[in-house]
Amino acid sequence: MALTYLEAIREALTRALRDDPTVFIYGQDVATFGGAFKATKNLSRDFPGRVLDAPISEDAMLGMAIGAAIEGMRPIVEMQFADFSSIAFNQIVNQAATHFWRTGVTCPLVVRLPSGGTPGSGPFHSQMMESIYAHYPGLVVLTPATVGDAYSMLLEAVALDDPVIFCEHKFLYYHLKDEALPEESLPIGKARIARMGRHATVVTYSAMVHESLRAAADLAAEGYEIEVIDLRSVKPIDSDTVLASVARTGRLLCVGESFPWGGVCAEVIARVVADGFNLLDAPPQRLNAKDTPIPYHPNLWAAHRPTAATIAESLRRLLRF
């Protein structure tokens, strides 16, 4: 029986609630309604009193989760859209992220961010926030790209003693499917080689893994073998796997759906240039969304973010160097 990415998230939430009595879910419309995307469907029925509707108060939702986490609970907060976590930004980066370092008391919570663009979602329901949160010390930032990772990384996130920003991609919710949930998986902090290759390395994460794989398939028809690395976790980041790949290919393209200024792609390139300059046969490149707010109309949106076609074009330029 095939499972979607969204169903994998629901399975992980179910298992977390079942296995750990300190876990509870808090968010807008998550209880009887089951969440805007139905990630928590039936969970309030199956776990009475442990799936709580929140008022439209992202700041207080996070503050509440932080207080509960300090007291030994393991709250999972659902932001209705990643974009709205900007309201909770202060609590996340100043309170949750600093807590362990300042006080020695851990703050184990998970913030689920339904992230990324879908056609028609526009500037305020499409954002990728991983680069913003990864900037701050004290947060783990995860960006699962597969059904298996959505499941296993969410379970691992709940078990971590640190605050975790869990960036799940809305574009993958319904049509990304897998046959079964994984028995075991790579630990958080390890990247995955999604496709082996020897001519160039694409480092990416989240929904861009799939666009990059399609681009790699196109390039294969042209005789190039492209290695695609799925970072899985952007913080901690697995520089070793990236450097080892660049050592094999000599060429690097980083692909991210977030805005171009700074961010995960810039970080990967900075690390490779600093630690593996001698491995490079060409200047490392990055491909991000455009430096404008995210457009509403599907025609504009499709051109705003990287796609298989633009990734393939970037790869051709990189390979020609």
Binding site: D59, G63, A65, G67, A69, Q91, N94, H99
Partner: peptide, 20 residues
């Protein structure tokens, strides 16, 4: 709890401690 400087933001933390 150990207060942060951003005023008002400890009130919800106390809420969470009480929820726990």
């Amino acid at each position: 709890p150990a207060m942060i400087s951003h005023l008002g933001s400890m009130v919800s933390v106390v809420c969470g401690m009480l929820v726990a």
